[in-house]
Design a protein around this nucleic acid. Structure first.
Lengths: 214, 214, 214, 214
DNA sequence: GTATAAACGAGACGGTACGTCAGGTCTTTCT
DNA sequence: AGAAAGACCTGACGTACCGTCTCGTTTATAC
């Protein structure tokens, strides 16, 4: 992680300006990592609603001020921890056709959505509903970063004649990814079947093929 | 509202048993209504993350115990308040065809999603990501209640030959409604255009028509 | 108990006026007794600082209003319960001389002070330090009632020539009984020896014998 | 006050160990003093039964936690406040004879008992009847501290031949001080005459002079 | 090599809200 | 009309965290 993942963090940070190494004792990278790790662990263990700055500080063996020096609240810690390895988690795939690219990318996303980190992502999106700063960070650093690439897939599919010409790329992506978020956040049919590989297969086939009888 | 909307509430409630009027002073319906109203108002004014039992009690002119006697926490108040008038908000529409029924229903849902109550619904779904009881209530009383009817629309469309025979009703509905929840919770393109009537129109046309060139 | 022991109670009580049997359902004497008993029991079991109207009502199987109809607060229940059998507990004794009378009476008082009801009496006098009404009841119904008789003992001792002529009866009684209350309320030397019969014997001998060498 | 007056307090206190300055921000002595002062003031104004931690905190301009960090309950604040200046209030006097020493000491004690702080002392002894910890603190830090010195006065009186040889010092002191506590806690004859200087004079004369005719 | 500067762990600070309990009152139904 | 039941509003309890603020100490650059 080169730059801060959460924009919320930036205000607290000193400006490194022109590589000037800044006077005084430098921040302890070990402490930073310990906080990120502890926050995720505590959230997973106790539930993210039970997450407190005090608890994270204690688990990380760090003073509260050390946390507040870096982040304005617990949720920006979580945001940082998650969005740090943003590219490694569910990376977008490029295939021969738009359908193949999107299908492969969606399979990876679904695996992430039903995997170990599922509670973190749910909590983060959930919390973002009451936290504009967090919402902004999620949209910009997670969603729009992926959209930029995905939209290109759709556009290439249109250009190549694979897809219908009058499609709105965002609506296409909404139709494909919307169901994933829907099932992530409102898992109405029991978690086991939801977001399985075959669910994605059927979903892609359905959306690409349309609903009406030909 | 005949019965309690939130299942979270049920534990607290005395059982009315067999129409036996229960000993002691009956609960004050006025107080109940004042709390529901105050909770929604305070949430809208201060933000739902700033909602406190104490604040709601004060605004409603009610003791805290009166609230705790009915609900286990603030969120179940909100859940009750919202899910009470569940049928009035965005009621499902029946048209001549499945497409017309779903289209009309989605337009109403989208209007609700972008309307005055939008912050309430967002907060409720958001909070549900860290509150299993609330999630269960939302799924059962909101989502599945609607799904039962919507699935029937799809099935009738299949039976009448309007829709393709091998469709999974839930996947169809995910493809249609998923985008709405997606845009509600992760409004990536500015709120103004999102969930507009024309967005729904295009979405319905896209999903019903499929993506691939015929 | 014919008459109300605690004056605190009198305000709440209906006036029987002229033996008129009062309209409506008569008060349940069983309930009254159950409350008195329960209050004492609960005080002894949990400590008198943990005594609550609610607890007493529950233990007595009685509604709170039934208690408030009779007493203004928990302490007046205790006062009533204790002062009811005031004459039976540590009754004053009449002997041949003032010394014998007082000695015998003090022995009984000391036994009461170190007996089973010791915590009740301590709590009552303790509470009276912050409750003027209770203090007044204790002084009038307990202390002054005894003083009237005790003073007469001293006076007879003076009249008979047994005691010095210039004594103030109250000061004599203070010198005799003061130590008992002192040890009851500030038991500084461990409870075992304090207020024993031999303590009383020595105390009486000391005070009566005078301190200075003849 | 070098050491904590109330033993109740000791558990909460961090051990200063061997002059080790203890990690973290040190406790604010100003806050401590403000609390002690406010507690006494509020008790005097509203009555000590109306004393609450919340009220004291508010008056002292202090958070509740700041109080609970130092004392376990309101009464230990009062105990600390009173027992702090224990030696200044009613100090024991040394005279030429035992009688003079005790007489002078009792006059000071009586003045204290009927003075401005009278309600505090009454409340404290009263509360101690239902609070073992407080009782222990009062006995050890107030009563026994004084007794140690007073007993020596009596012993010297016996050694010098001023007093009879077979006297029990504690019983002598009970006979002298018992009446003071009796009148403090059960002021049966109106507060005006009680504990006046002339009451003490007569009391001392009576007890010292003996009661029976020579 | 000695300032100066900032970060560090610790923990106290003034607050807010929690969820509970009890106070004393009021409102039911039943006796 | 009294009684048991239990809801009502009020207000305090003791706890947990908030975000800020000293402490004394450590670890850097700058003089």
């Amino acid at each position: 992680m080169q730059k801060s993942a959460s924009s919320a963090r930036s205000k607290k940070n000193r400006k490194p300006a022109q590589d000037k190494p800044a006077a005084g004792r430098p921040r302890n990278a070990k402490a930073t990592q310990a906080v990120l790790k502890s926050a995720i662990e505590l959230g997973m263990e106790l539930g993210f609603d039970a997450l407190t700055v005090e608890g994270v500080a204690a688990r990380a063996g760090v003073g509260k001020a050390t946390i507040y020096r870096r982040w304005p609240n617990v949720w920006s810690i979580i945001a940082d921890a998650v969005l740090a390895d943003i590219d490694e988690i569910a990376p977008l795939q490029q295939g021969a056709t738009a359908r193949e690219s999107l299908h492969a990318s969606m399979l990876l996303a679904a695996r992430y959505f039903r995997g170990r980190r599922r509670p973190i992502l749910r909590a983060l999106i959930g919390r973002a509903q009451m936290d504009e700063t967090l919402l902004k960070a999620l949209i910009e650093q997670w969603l729009l970063a992926r959209r930029a690439v995905s939209r290109e897939m759709v556009r290439r599919g249109i250009a190549s004649g694979e897809l219908r010409a009058n499609l709105d790329a965002d609506i296409v992506l909404d139709a494909l990814y919307g169901p994933l978020y829907h099932r992530l956040l409102l898992p109405y049919s029991g978690d086991q079947i939801a977001l399985s590989d075959s669910y994605i297969d059927t979903l892609v086939a359905t959306v690409f093929g349309g609903l009406e009888r030909k």
